[in-house]
Design a protein around this nucleic acid. Structure first.
Length: 251
DNA sequence: GCTCATGTTCCCCT
DNA sequence: CAGGGGAACATGAG
């Protein structure tokens, strides 16, 4: 699930805990607490949650709660006495409710951190919501990799994941296997425009919409067809990830 | 039993 | 150094 829009949805969920005191951190699965100790945030008050790429950053007193959701993580605010999910791994118990970090496959995790957050997140490029057309062109200049590989790179632009990148390439009508360095400025422009649109349109939904008129709404069908032209979509590994594109329109 | 999965990292090549 | 391929991580769902 978690790409930029999903994590933005989790941020909205986290806001329900903003301003509340953390009474207790329940570490149900200690392997998901990847750094720091409960004591760093217990008794502190949550501030306003932020997001950078696929990272959720939640200030708590002089520390920060950093969360990454891997492929199966999510965040829920729930009443304290409501039933927990079997994959809830770490729970921030507050008065009036609790914030539950859930993660089935256990990729990603939670850090309770006082030092530079870059030690945890590694270097991240600008968030995809903040990359304008000029910046996009600058970032992609002198890149030698494919469109797929380049847009997936979190150190270049933060927040785009597998579904989003396929969606962007499809909207821009660019073959994801193409080398960035071979793209005309017109195609680069199209790519930026598609990214901007996909990001903006998926933010309110809190996910890449598997909707009519979106590649994401068609890619998982048994015989997946291009929503624009009806051509049978192609599916193959590109840059190590399952990639779906329209062989007729994407060049 | 088998394959595949919205992410990241690490190792080995070229 | 940049980039690609593949494996590993852990746990399902189909």
């Amino acid at each position: 699930m978690p790409e930029l829009p999903d994590v933005e949805g989790f941020r909205r969920e986290a806001r329900k805990a903003a301003g509340r005191r953390i009474e207790h951190v329940e570490v149900i699965d200690a392997t998901l607490l990847r750094g720091g100790k409960r004591a760093a945030v217990e008794g502190r008050r949550f501030g306003e949650p932020m997001r950078h790429g696929k990272w959720l950053i939640f200030p708590a007193g002089d520390a920060e709660v950093l969360m990454h959701f891997g492929m199966t993580g999510r965040l829920d605010w729930a009443p304290r006495r409501s039933e927990r999910h079997r994959h809830d791994r770490i729970v921030f118990v507050c008065r009036g409710g609790e914030l539950r970090y859930r993660n089935m496959r256990k990729f990603g995790g939670v850090w309770l951190w006082r030092q530079s957050r870059e030690q945890v997140t590694g270097p991240l490029g600008p968030d995809a919501t903040e990359v304008d057309r000029e910046r996009f062109a600058e970032l992609l200049a002198n890149r030698r990799g494919t469109v797929k590989h380049t847009l997936m790179d979190q150190t270049l632009i933060a927040g785009l994941g597998n579904l989003m990148v396929d969606e962007v390439a499809w909207r821009a009508r660019v073959d994801p296997r193409r080398k960035v360095s071979e793209l005309s400025s017109r195609r680069l422009e199209r790519l930026w425009h598609a990214m901007d649109e996909v990001v903006r349109d998926s933010l309110p939904t809190g996910r890449v919409p598997p909707a009519e008129g979106w590649l994401t709404g068609a890619r998982d069908a048994r015989t997946a067809r291009c929503p624009r032209c009806g051509t049978r979509l192609r599916r193959a590994a590109v840059a190590g990830r399952t990639t779906v594109w329209c062989p007729r329109e994407q060049r």
